[in-house]
Deep mutational scan, measured.
Amino acid sequence: MSIQHFRVALIPFFAAFCLPVFAHPETLVKVKDAEDQLGARVGYIELDLNSGKILESFRPEERFPMMSTFKVLLCGAVLSRVDAGQEQLGRRIHYSQNDLVEYSPVTEKHLTDGMTVRELCSAAITMSDNTAANLLLTTIGGPKELTAFLHNMGDHVTRLDRWEPELNEAIPNDERDTTMPAAMATTLRKLLTGELLTLASRQQLIDWMEADKVAGPLLRSALPAGWFIADKSGASERGSRGIIAALGPDGKPSRIVVIYTTGSQATMDERNRQIAEIGASLIKHW
């Protein structure tokens, strides 16, 4: 067993022997300050990975656009099909120029040879490739089937209704393509630590998230040396920005953090900075 597999395998073990964890309200002060700075709603939740206990939250049951954070859930659904023998990570999918949508930095380079399901999930999570996400959605039956998968997991909140890039419209009070911080955190925890996926698939999912290449300005920018993070960011219209992450010190994840914001007129750089500052406060008061 590799060191990485050993780390994931021990998560349920540590759950039975973990020391108590305590929240620090200073982080919530920073979350509220971020709302003021951005002139927008901010949703935040911090969940103990082992016990599932909510350590701190702000607007945990308000809806926010999922943006590209849905791609982790999508690849979780794909992996569940792999575990059930209904899909193969090595299966090659061919597509055409007509399938390409905006922001497809990986898939646009493989029009001649296609990409495997594994490569598409990697592109969707690590590079947030939109065409990769659409091709993967097709393999499971579309957005409604992803919503059904989540319902079967016990998540009756999170929903995907449209494809890339339309799902990023982020219209106020529109429940399409939205989640709540509490629902997303719970669902992510189930995918990473529960029995829904095999150990190999849980490890694959967290490996893809750990290799995320487009979330550098967010929580990763505040991460001390030696800390672990596996994450997925998202951005969409109407000043929306978000990130879902499993992180912790000593090279292993111990908490789930979900941050969403929407309705801001601030620049992308400012939205990134506010999320990074929330992360810095979280780490300082860990």
Rank of each mutant, 00 (worst) to 15 (best):
P224K: 02
R271W: 04
R92V: 15
T112R: 14
N130G: 03
L282M: 12
S57R: 09
K190I: 09
M180E: 11
T178L: 00
Q204H: 11
A182K: 15
A34G: 03
A211G: 10
M153G: 05
Q203S: 08
I3F: 15
L100K: 02
V72S: 02
F14G: 07
F228Y: 15
M127L: 13
E46R: 01
Q88C: 10
I244L: 04
R41V: 05
K53Q: 14
G141R: 08
L28R: 05
R241K: 06
K190E: 12
D212H: 06
M268Y: 08
L38V: 04
E145Q: 14
S236G: 15
A84S: 13
M153W: 05
P172W: 07
D83V: 01
K252R: 11
C75V: 12
S221T: 11
R162T: 05
P60I: 10
P253V: 03
P165E: 02
M180T: 14
Q265L: 12
A215S: 11
E87M: 08
P224E: 01
M180A: 15
D207H: 11
P25V: 11
L247R: 00
L167C: 10
L160S: 06
A215K: 03
R59K: 05
G226K: 07
I125V: 12
P253H: 05
G239K: 02
I3K: 13
L89Y: 05
P60N: 06
I3R: 06
I54R: 06
G90W: 13
G194M: 07
E169D: 10
I11T: 10
M153Y: 04
E169C: 11
G248A: 00
I11L: 11
P172V: 08
S221D: 08
T139M: 10
G85R: 11
E61V: 11
P224S: 02
E61D: 12
R220A: 01
T178D: 01
P224F: 00
G226R: 05
D250N: 13
A276Y: 10
Q4A: 11
F6L: 12
N152Y: 06
D33E: 13
Q204Y: 09
T187M: 05
H156C: 13
E277D: 09
M180C: 04
F13V: 11
V29M: 14
I244A: 02
G251S: 09
G251D: 07
S240A: 15
S254P: 02
R63T: 05
A77R: 08
L38W: 05
P12H: 12
I140F: 07
A15P: 08
G234A: 04
S221H: 10
S264N: 11
T139D: 11
K53R: 09
S254L: 09
I54S: 05
D33Q: 15
Q86Y: 12
N173Y: 13
M268Q: 07
L218T: 02
Q37G: 08
S240M: 03
H285Y: 14
A211K: 12
E56N: 05
M268R: 04
D33C: 06
V42A: 03
A222L: 04
G239W: 03
L10E: 03
P105S: 04
T147K: 03
T267A: 11
L192F: 11
R271I: 15
L47S: 05
P20D: 15
A15L: 11
S221C: 09
R81V: 05
G234E: 12
S104A: 05
A215E: 03
T187L: 04
A34L: 05
L136V: 04
K32I: 12
E277Q: 11
V214L: 11
L219G: 01
E237T: 15
A23V: 11
G251Q: 08
W208A: 01
K213I: 07
K213C: 12
Q203E: 09
N130S: 04
V117S: 01
G52D: 04
W286G: 00
A245E: 00
I243S: 00
P25L: 09
P60Q: 12
A16E: 05
A182E: 10
R220H: 01
K30V: 07
S104V: 02
T193C: 14
P65N: 03
Q265R: 13
L136G: 00
V42L: 08
P172H: 09
A9C: 11
E26R: 04
K252D: 05
R220L: 01
R238Y: 12
R220I: 00
H110N: 11
G43R: 00
M268N: 06
R238C: 13
K213G: 06
F13Y: 13
E108P: 05
G216L: 04
L10Q: 07
D212S: 03
N168P: 02
A235I: 01
E166N: 12
R238Q: 13
F14Y: 00
Q4L: 06
K144E: 14
G39R: 15
G154E: 05
R271T: 09
A15E: 04
K190A: 13
S80R: 13
R63S: 03
L73Q: 02
L196V: 13
A15V: 15
V214I: 09
E277N: 11
V82N: 03
N152C: 10
A124T: 13
G52V: 03
G263R: 06
R176L: 08
D33N: 10
A215P: 03
D174E: 06
S221K: 14
R63A: 03
D161C: 02
S233A: 11
L38M: 10
D83N: 02
R202S: 14
V8L: 14
K144G: 14
F14W: 07
V82W: 05
L73V: 11
T187N: 07
V214A: 09
R241S: 08
D269L: 09
R241N: 06
Q204E: 06
T262Q: 08
G239D: 02
K213V: 09
P12R: 04
Q203R: 14
Y44F: 06
I140N: 01
V8T: 14
S96V: 14
G39D: 13
L188S: 02
A16V: 13
R63H: 05
I11G: 11
P20T: 15
P105H: 04
I244Q: 00
D250P: 04
C75F: 01
H94D: 11
Q88M: 11
Q274H: 15
M180R: 09
Y103L: 04
K53N: 10
N134T: 01
E166Q: 10
G85Q: 13
N152T: 14
L55F: 08
I244N: 00
G39V: 09
H24D: 06
D36R: 15
D174Y: 02
M115I: 09
I243C: 03
E56C: 05
L135C: 05
A235D: 02
P217A: 10
L55S: 03
V101D: 11
L188M: 08
K109G: 13
G234C: 04
S240P: 02
L73S: 08
L167H: 02
S57C: 08
T267I: 05
D113R: 11
R91N: 08
I259V: 10
Q97W: 12
R238S: 14
P172I: 10
N50K: 15
F149H: 07
M268P: 09
N98S: 14
P65I: 02
D36G: 14
F6D: 06
R241A: 04
P105L: 04
I243E: 01
M67G: 15
G194R: 07
H110Q: 10
T186I: 09
E237F: 10
A215T: 05
D250S: 09
S240G: 15
D269Y: 06
K53M: 15
A15W: 15
I283R: 01
G43A: 02
R189S: 11
L73R: 04
Q4T: 13
E175M: 12
E166T: 08
R202P: 01
T198R: 10
L247M: 08
C121A: 07
T126I: 07
T139Q: 10
T147R: 05
L160G: 00
L199E: 15
T267S: 04
A245T: 01
W163H: 06
A15K: 05
M268V: 07
D48E: 11
L136M: 07
